[in-house]
Design a protein around this nucleic acid. Structure first.
Lengths: 205, 205
DNA sequence: GAAAAGAATTGAGTTCGTTCATTTTTGAAG
DNA sequence: CTTCAAAAATGAACGAACTCAATTCTTTTC
């Protein structure tokens, strides 16, 4: 279980991830070469490729850790949501958005999104897509919870509405990272406005 | 105006585009080398780079032509929409979706989307983003038209709703091209279900 | 504890997108 | 018709991601 080989493997993995994470953030994904990461992690280029399918997969591994954190943070909102539907959505989405630039630059997000679309087969791309689906399910859980608490109309297709909300927040986040100049509060405001009609529709009369 | 130089330029541009379009579709974007395209278009590699900033820009040029066609086709629906809101949305979105695989493979779409996110600065990436915005405006025009005709409630934020609809259809299309196995009718069905709550909300009582 | 098996590491080599110094072509001026 | 300058074309050279045959390190077997 804890043979030398396994310990070395775990150690190398974390060294590579730490080096890549630091270098990508400091210098930018595009500007860092695989050789730089391998050097910083004290492994050879070939070894790095034994651990990660390609440069993009390495980035997605880092992004996945970030998304997992966000997913965890969202749980508290679902458990205890505000009574107002617009507020409830804004709170959950706010957690997603505000967390996003904590560890990752906009450039890193752009690259990660691009890779998850273009190379959907690599291990961490699959993982990333799974996590995205988990976020969508969390939005759905929130709406069902609001329905269960009587804060939202129960006769509405919760899945349809939550997919609408999630796809919208996802697309808005994509726009946000595409435009380096766009500030975070503009993202919040735009999403809130778009959700308002749905919140109105969901509110019991 | 029509000097030799200008004619040769236009001729080379169209030869390059034709060659790239055919080769990308036949063999796949990733499998085709710049040298192959240059050879098929009877220009040198360097010349190709005088006409297009990079391999991705060449693809986006092709995709842009496709989107322009779709945008044109959508105009007729906005001018004369079905009375039922769900129907109206499904008709417009149906035009977008059904056109999409006419000239482009899923792989080409994936790559184009990835590039427009990752490299938003190149000439055709800007063009592609503009066209996307035009599609969003067209969805908004449809909803305003439905309001003007009295088919939809006029006291609803048309812009917010249309952005919700557009971002959703865009994201759903992204899922569609990400999954090679997903059939077109599943895409139509999923989008229609997601739009149903909004259509209900918009319908005058 | 020696030896064989097999797992993992290594870095030089390959590939392909992109660049740029040089050459060729074009259009204008004399 | 020459000459010249500007525009455009060219392909060899470069850089970086990725591969793979050879080597080294672990573990297992007797």
């Amino acid at each position: 279980m804890t043979g030398l080989r396994e310990r070395q493997k775990a150690d190398r993995t974390s060294r590579i991830l730490a080096a890549a994470s630091r270098l990508f953030r400091e210098t930018g994904y595009g500007a860092i070469r695989i050789e730089d990461i391998a050097h910083a992690a004290e492994v050879s280029v070939g070894t790095l490729y034994n651990y990660f399918a390609n440069k993009g997969d390495l980035l997605l591994a880092i992004v996945s850790m970030e998304v997992e954190e966000v997913l965890q943070a969202g749980k508290t909102v679902v458990a205890n949501p505000p009574r107002d539907i617009g507020q409830a959505l804004a709170t959950l989405i706010g957690i997603y958005y505000d967390h996003s630039l904590h560890y990752l630059s906009k450039e890193m997000w752009r690259t990660a999104m691009a890779i998850s679309i273009e190379a959907p087969g690599t291990p961490f791309s699959v993982r990333y897509t799974d996590l995205d689906a988990s976020l969508a399910r969390q939005v759905c859980a929130l709406i069902r919870r609001l329905q269960a608490l009587g804060y939202a109309r129960a006769d509405v297709d919760a899945e349809a509405v939550s997919q609408l909300v999630f796809n919208n927040l996802n697309q808005m986040f994509t726009e946000f990272v595409k435009q380096d100049a766009m500030p975070m509060d503009m993202l919040h405001a735009a999403t809130a406005r778009q959700n308002a009609p749905l919140a109105d529709y969901l509110t019991p009369r």
